[in-house]
Amino acid sequence: MHSHQLAEFTPRAQVQPNADLIRSATTTAARLLRMEGQVGTLSPGAHADLLVVDGNPLEDISVLTKPQEYLKHVIKAGTPV
C-alpha cells in the first residue's frame, strides 16, 4: 500500500487547493498525532526530512505524486540520502 499513498493527492487536488493538501500531510497530520513541533515542520529540534523536487507542487501536485520523475534529493535527519 505504500506505493499508493501519494496517489491520493491526485483526486483530492480536484476539490482542494494544493497548499491545503500539503498542509494536511504535514502540519495537520502532526496536530492530529499530537506531535506539533516534532513532525510536519522544518524547525530546530524537529524530526524533519526534506524532499527536493524539480517543480512547484503548489502549481502541479504531480511533482509530489511521481517521485520517479520529479524527486531529486532526500535529506533525512539532516543527512542527504
Results as ranks from 00 to 15, higher is better:
His47Cys: 14
Pro57Arg: 08
Gln38Cys: 11
Gln38Asn: 12
Lys72Glu: 10
Thr79Phe: 02
Val63His: 06
Asn18Gly: 00
Ala13His: 09
Val39Asn: 02
Ala29Leu: 06
Thr26Cys: 09
Leu64Trp: 01
Glu69Trp: 01
Thr65Arg: 06
Ser43Gly: 13
Asp60Glu: 08
Leu42Tyr: 13
Val74Asn: 02
Met35Ser: 14
Val81Cys: 09
Arg31Ile: 09
Glu69Ala: 08
Val74Trp: 03
Leu42His: 10
Leu51Asn: 09
Ala19Glu: 15
Val74Gln: 11
Val81Leu: 13
Asn18Pro: 00
Ile75Gly: 00
Ile75Cys: 07
Ala77Gln: 13
Thr65Tyr: 03
Ala48Phe: 13
Val53Cys: 09
Ala25Pro: 04
Leu58Ile: 08
Leu50Ala: 11
Pro67Trp: 04
Ala19Arg: 15
Thr26Trp: 02
Arg23Ile: 11
Leu51Lys: 08
Pro80Leu: 13
Leu42Met: 14
Val63Cys: 01
Pro57Tyr: 06
Ile22Ser: 03
Leu33Lys: 07
Gln38Trp: 10
Leu64Pro: 00
Gln68Ala: 11
Val81Thr: 14
Ile61Ala: 05
Gln38Gly: 08
Thr41Ser: 14
Gln16Tyr: 01
Gly45Ile: 13
Val63Asn: 04
Gln68Gly: 15
Gly55Gln: 05
Thr79Val: 15
Ser43Trp: 09
Leu71Val: 04
Leu33Glu: 07
Val63Ser: 05
Ala46Asn: 11
Ala30Trp: 05
His73Pro: 04
Leu64Met: 01
Leu42Ser: 07
His47Leu: 15
Lys66Gly: 03
Gln38Leu: 14
Ile22Asn: 00
Gln38Ala: 14
Gly78Lys: 10
Ser43Thr: 15
Glu59Lys: 10
Arg23Pro: 00
Val39Asp: 01
Thr41Val: 15
Gly45Lys: 14
Leu32Lys: 06
Tyr70Glu: 02
Gly78Val: 11
Ile75Ala: 04
His73Trp: 12
Asp60Thr: 04
Val52Trp: 00
Asn56Pro: 00
Leu33Cys: 11
Leu71Lys: 04
Ala25Glu: 00
Gly37Trp: 10
Thr27Phe: 03
Ile75Asp: 02
Ala29Gln: 01
Leu64Ala: 02
Gln14His: 04
Glu69Tyr: 03
Ser43Gln: 15
Asn56Phe: 00
Ala30Tyr: 05
Ala25Arg: 08
Val81Glu: 10
Leu32Thr: 07
Glu69Val: 09
Leu58Met: 06
Asp49Ile: 06
Ile75Asn: 02
Thr26Gln: 00
Thr65Pro: 00
Arg23His: 12
Arg23Gly: 03
Ala77Gly: 15
Gln16Phe: 07
Ser43Pro: 09
Ser43Ile: 10
Gly40Ser: 09
Lys66Ala: 10
Pro57Thr: 08
Leu33Asp: 02
Arg34Phe: 10
Gln14Ile: 01
Val52Met: 09
Gln16Cys: 14
Ala46Pro: 06
Asn18Leu: 03
Glu69Thr: 12
Asp20Tyr: 01
Pro44Arg: 14
His73Lys: 11
Thr65Ser: 12
Val15Glu: 07
Arg31Pro: 04
Gly78Phe: 05
Tyr70Gly: 03
Glu59Arg: 13
Ala13Met: 00
Gln68Pro: 05
Asp54Phe: 01
Ala48Cys: 14
Ala30Asn: 03
Leu32Cys: 08
Thr27Gln: 12
Leu64His: 03
Thr41Lys: 13
Thr26Asn: 08
Tyr70Ser: 05
Gly40Ile: 09
Lys66Asn: 14
Gln14Leu: 04
Ala77Val: 06
